[in-house]
């Protein structure tokens, strides 16, 4: 099977890669580009562990072909922190102990970031609906929701 040459932008950098036609974006990120943050929980769009932002929309990278990345703008968990400075969501996840094994965490963080980008002041209900496509087997979700609420508060500058 011949390879497809793809040019794309990932976390602000121009990236070029070769992939097979049937390779998913998740496979490309993990196996070809060494970006191991996005996880494969299911491979069928059910768990959200592979969440990635493509052209401003959070999607399951396991349901995107690598070839579809051509000309697009992709954000992954690797681009979330500013150097060694954690994104407020990342800091609040640690503070609230919103992770245990951590497998679901990159997906939750990316999905939560996409939410706060469009809705800086979500209600608890909005957070729970928005994150319903992210599954966690460890935390019971409550701490995740609290962490997102707290991060939103901090990002709005309403509390340091």
């Amino acid at each position: 099977m011949s390879s497809i040459a793809v040019s794309t932008t990932i976390n602000g950098d121009d990236v070029e890669f070769l992939c097979r036609a049937d390779e998913t974006l998740l496979d490309v990120l993990r196996n070809r580009l060494g970006l191991l943050g996005a996880k494969e929980g299911c491979g069928t769009g059910d768990c959200g562990a592979c969440s990635t932002i493509v052209d401003g929309r959070v999607v399951c990278s396991c349901l995107v072909l690598g070839a579809e990345a051509e000309g697009r703008t992709i954000e992954t968990i690797e681009g979330m922190a500013n150097g060694s400075e954690l994104h407020p969501l990342q800091a609040k996840f640690i503070e609230h102990a919103a992770l245990q094994c951590g497998i679901c965490t990159p997906g939750f963080l990316i999905a939560a970031k996409a939410l706060l980008d469009v809705n800086p002041e979500p209600t608890e209900e909005e957070i729970r609906y928005w994150l319903a496509g992210n599954l966690c087997r460890c935390t019971g979700y409550d701490k995740i929701v609290r962490a997102v609420q707290d991060a939103a508060l901090e990002m709005r500058g309403e509390r340091a």
Binding site: G45, V58, G133
Partner: peptide, 9 residues
């Protein structure tokens, strides 16, 4: 239809 992630596609 589906989750936020599915809605995006």
């Amino acid at each position: 239809i589906g989750s936020t992630q599915i809605q995006g596609r």
